[in-house]
Amino acid sequence: MRLTWWFRKNLIRVYMVLGFTYLFIPVAYTFAFSFNNGGKSNLVWKSFTLGNWQNPCGAPDVCVALGNSIRVGVISTVLATILGTLIAFAIGRHQFKGRSTINTLIFLPMATPEVVLGASLLAMFLNLGINPGFWPVVIAHVMFCISFVVVTVKARIASLDPRLEQAAMDLYANEFETFRKVTLPLVAPGIAGAALLAFSLSFDDFIITNFNSGTLTTFPKFVYVASARGIPAQANVIGSAMFFLALFIVIAGQLVSRRKAR
C-alpha cells in the first residue's frame, strides 16, 4: 500500500531516471571503452589503460579527420552564423514584401532529408565539373546550418521587448547606436547559441558530408569507415573529450549569464 503510494507519487521521477539512463548508456559505454587497452578493434574489454588519452593521435588518421572536422566546422559556423543572423534581423525587425516566401525557403532545408540535400548538391557539383572535397563540404554545411541559425536568432529577437529599443531612441540613440548599444548586446546570447548549434551540427554531420567530401575524411566519416573493422579507442577518446568540452562550454555559459544577471 505504502509502496504503491510512493510509486505513484514518484512515477515521473522514476521515469526520468530511466529516461536519462537510456540517454547516457552509449555515452558511458564510449567513455568507458576509451580506457580499454583493446588493440585496434576495441570490441571487447581487455584491460584498463590511460594510454589512449595520453596519446589521442596514436591511431593513424584519427587526428587528421578531427582536424578536418574542426576546420570545416569553424568556417561553416562563422559563415552560417553571419548569413543566418542577417536574415533573422530582416525577418524579426523589418517589414518587407515576400516574407512568407522567405519563411518557406528557410523552413524547406530543415524539412528535406539529409540524403536528398547531400545527393542533390553532389549531383550539381558533378554537373558543373567541381570535384567533391573540402570547399563543397563547407558550402553544404553552411547551407543546412543557416536555417537553424535563423530560427534560433529569430526566437531571441522575438523575445526582445520592443520598448527597450524605443527607450534607447527616446534617450537620443539614433538607429545605428540603438542597434549597437541595445539590440545587438541583448541578441548576442542567441547568436552565440546559434553558433554553438551550427558548429555541433557541422561537426556531427555524416550523411551530407559523405556525399560531398570525396577523399576528405572528417571525424564522423572516419568512424563510419572504421566501424566495419572496429573503431580504435582513440576515437572514443575524442568523442568523450568533445562531450566534456561541450558540456563545459554550455554550463560555463549558463553560469556566466547568471552572474551577469546578478
Binding site: 564522423p220 568533445m242 562531450f243 568540452l245
Partner: peptide
C-alpha cells in the same frame, strides 16, 4: 536547467560513435 543540458549532452558525442556503441552493447559480445 541542468536537466535540460543533460538531455542535449549525449549529442555532443558523435552520433556515429553512439550508434556503434549501441551495436556493441546489444551485439554478440
Amino acid at each position: 536547467n541542468l536537466l535540460l543540458v543533460l538531455v542535449v549532452a549525449p549529442f555532443f558525442t558523435s552520433f556515429l560513435l553512439r550508434t556503434i556503441a549501441w551495436k556493441q552493447i546489444l551485439g554478440e559480445e
